[in-house]
Amino acid sequence: MTDPSPNDDFYLRYYVGHEGKFGREFLEFELYPSGKLRYANNSNYKDDDLIRKEVYVSPAVVEEFRRLVEVSEITKVDDSKWKEPDERSTGHQELECKIGSHHIAFTACEIRSLGDIQKWNDPEGLQTFYYLTLDLKALVMALISSHFKARPIPD
């Protein structure tokens, strides 16, 4: 049975990771319509373990996630011209979101700064994507650190 919710047309998943000098490092979160928020962060720096957290956020929080996605206008972005991530050198990120009748699933290279994307195809679309992922990450980090008093490693 699926998670019941008033936000039943909203789902969100984000992943960013790369193979680095400390092995595979990644951050991932997923928000279900029920409000279940799953968070995982694997940084091997100084032998940090994989951190997994799970908590239910209220419908008001889910609504704020939805609002961030809506105002970003990410559903108008077309990723067909984006360059394919090269896992060995750059890492990659994935954003999947169901919102209303839209279902988007984007894959992009890891973006370390806005300067990166000026040289790539569709810098405007990538910029929308970049800022949205920053806003979503900030909200998730604030939630996780508020609830668990863990200090998630900022990306």
Partner: peptide
Amino acid sequence: RHGDSGQNQESSDD
């Protein structure tokens, strides 16, 4: 739109 001020909100599945 999901109910009162944060407590005892109810919902249904789809």
